[in-house]
Design a protein around this nucleic acid. Structure first.
Length: 154
DNA sequence: AACCCGTCCAACCGCTAGTAA
DNA sequence: CTTACTAGCGGTTGGACGGGT
């Protein structure tokens, strides 16, 4: 049956976590074709995933030289803070200044950092609520709490 | 031991800009 | 010029996990 142009069949699209087999297929495709033509991965029936999903998987997890499972260093944090102040939430641009980090990494890092700082700020505004700075002392991060650029706390 | 709560992270969604038809 | 489609980006969500009570 002819499908109207623009109509995309979403019936066979898989979502959710990627399996090792899917990763393998994707890596194989990229080895042969390079990281492009994402949509043809789906249209050729290689994987029941959207091009968008494939691209994301590659960029965030499969790309070589990614720093996996490793926290942001103090230096990395410094760079992110500085660039965010200068450029705003341009995560992809900021990530390009850090080796082995993706925009998703930076984004995730920033939002948890933001929450952390908000909490710290909150508890210092309400000192009668339990121990002041208690949260800070519990931080796993070895990074010293950076100065708080209030304008960036959004 | 069981529950609660915060953190982290993978992956989704919606939007936009660029471009091919 | 308009339309359709893709790639890429930023925001958001939900589940897994770990530490505290």
């Amino acid at each position: 049956m002819m499908k109207k142009k623009g109509f995309k069949d979403q019936s066979n699209i898989r979502k959710g976590p990627w399996s090792a087999e899917e990763d393998e297929v994707l890596i194989d495709f990229i080895n042969k074709n390079g990281p492009r033509d994402w949509s043809s991965i789906q249209s050729k029936g290689l994987l029941p995933r959207t091009g968008k999903s494939c691209r994301l998987r590659w960029v965030n997890k499969l790309r070589p030289n990614l720093k996996v499972g490793c926290k942001f260093s103090a230096e990395e944090e410094r760079i992110v803070v500085e660039l965010q102040a200068r450029l705003g939430n341009k995560w992809a641009t900021i990530a390009s200044h850090l080796t082995g980090r993706t925009d998703n990494d930076v984004k995730n890092f920033w939002s948890s950092r933001k929450k952390r700082l908000a909490r710290t700020l909150n508890s210092s505004l309400q000192p009668n609520k339990k121990c002041l700075y208690q949260d800070q002392s519990k931080q796993k991060s070895t990074v010293p709490t950076p100065q708080l650029p209030s304008s960036n706390l959004e």
